[in-house]
């Protein structure tokens, strides 16, 4: 599936919730079920500092694709992190660079990606794109 198709899938998953509480309960569930990041990657240099919730992001580049692992100490953020990984992890740099996480807007959680929210999510998206940019440059030099 393409990034866009997965985004559409996520939007559909969320379309069933009428009450905001159900939506958040689902995010919390996703966050709870998410595999934790390997302890050895939960380190200062992988930490993306949001003011209030912390996000750790680790990546590896293999076979032209970037594999991301991430985690947050806040569950709602963690749920959103899981969704971001679902669309971006295992993709080529080009795919990552050419798509925006529009699903967050469409499921009505745009406020979590606003620059004034100090939750680390926006910084995480930026960081993923920076990695993609760096790897794209490296690949094109070869």
């Amino acid at each position: 599936m393409t990034i866009d198709e997965i985004q559409q899938e996520i939007v559909e998953e969320f379309s069933g919730f009428e009450d905001w509480m159900d939506k958040y309960a689902y995010l919390i569930e996703i966050g709870n079920e998410m595999a934790p990041i390997d302890a050895k990657y939960k380190i200062e240099s992988n930490l993306i500092r949001g003011c209030q919730s912390r996000v750790w992001l680790h990546q590896e580049f293999t076979d032209g694709r970037i594999i991301f692992e991430a985690e947050s100490d806040a569950l709602i953020v963690k749920g959103l992190v899981a969704l971001l990984l679902r669309i971006y992890s295992g993709r080529t740099p080009h795919e990552i660079l050419s798509s925006e996480p529009r699903f967050i807007d469409e499921i009505g959680l745009r406020q979590h990606l606003s620059p004034t929210r100090s939750n680390g999510l926006l910084a995480m998206v930026k960081q993923m794109k920076l990695y993609a940019l760096a790897y794209e440059k490296i690949s094109s030099k070869k």
Partner: peptide, 13 residues
């Protein structure tokens, strides 16, 4: 067991 950020987000709702 509840992160303050989560609590604040939900209270805001």
């Amino acid at each position: 067991g509840i992160h303050p950020f989560d609590l604040g987000t939900l209270l805001d709702q």
